[in-house]
Write a protein that binds this DNA or RNA. Structure first.
Length: 255
DNA sequence: ATGGTTGCTTAGCAA
């Protein structure tokens, strides 16, 4: 079973590239972020033609998450007890067989001290609390907007104590791991310096000046099933159609 | 070259 996460930076702008990519790989469950459109405008039919059932939680212009799966989910989780998890569309879950899968789009946070920064911390508090209550086989796939360690950024001087690398942000990923979640890419590749996002400006992708901020975490109960993990740089290196600033992250499970 | 890129929605915001 192949699980992928991809921040597409607009599903409508990225549809052609996404279709091309999906024909090259054989993804079973695709978690999308920054779909940036209301549910009515989500290209359900186009993805349906590629064999995917789409579970969508969109909003106009910003945010928006979805999960496209080959199997039909028997449950959708799109409402949460904590209001901060409901107001912006950053989290959706589905259940397939005995597995819960979440597509996650954590707030960017702007810069320390700004309103959006405090929002990020409050959102993460609510998210970790919610996730801590989940039981059994759980997968969290998405754009977490935090580079966990120094090896997850291209330059530790330029990217020291800035948004995405602050100790207080990294502590949230530590807490996820303390709760039993596994960073699948890092487990399979303990030493590899690979990124999942590169700034659009200044040709960052061609210099590999990026950060690893997209992750697939799985609960401890999955540990024996994890077979492989990778970052597919192919979509990010297209010149046409225009790519997202992120690239897909993949995890493979023997289920 | 003293900046540079996208997308959504239409000039300002968000990333």
């Amino acid at each position: 079973m192949l699980v992928a996460t991809y921040n597409v930076n607009s599903i409508r702008a990225r549809l052609n590239l996404l279709q091309e990519w999906l024909q090259r790989v054989d993804i079973d469950i695709l978690c999308l972020q920054e779909t940036k459109t209301l549910d009515d405008n989500f290209p359900k039919e186009e993805l349906g033609r590629l064999g995917y059932q789409c579970t969508i939680l969109g909003q106009k212009a910003y945010n928006g998450v979805a999960i496209c799966s080959k199997k039909l989910p028997h449950k959708t989780i799109n409402k949460f007890d904590d209001e901060i998890l409901n107001e912006q569309k950053r989290l959706i879950g589905i259940a397939i067989d005995d597995i819960e899968i979440y597509s996650v789009y954590a707030p960017h946070g702007d810069a320390r001290g700004m309103d959006k920064y405090h929002y990020k911390l409050r959102w993460y508090d609510a998210f970790i609390k919610f996730i801590g209550q989940r039981q059994g086989k759980v997968i969290l796939a998405g754009d977490f907007n935090i580079a966990h360690k120094d090896m997850d950024v291209y330059d530790t001087v330029i990217l020291n104590d800035v948004i995405g690398t602050m100790a207080e942000e990294r502590a949230y990923l530590d807490r996820l791991i303390e709760n039993g979640f596994i960073d699948t890419f890092r487990l399979i590749h303990p030493k590899e310096k690979k990124f999942s996002w590169w700034d659009y400006t200044a040709g960052a992708i061609w210099k590999d000046e990026g950060m690893r901020i997209d992750y697939i975490f799985c609960s401890k109960s999955f540990e024996g099933y994890l077979k492989d993990a990778s970052i597919d740089i192919w979509p990010r290196k297209r010149r046409t159609p225009t790519p997202s600033d992120h690239t897909p992250v993949i995890a493979s499970f023997v289920i």
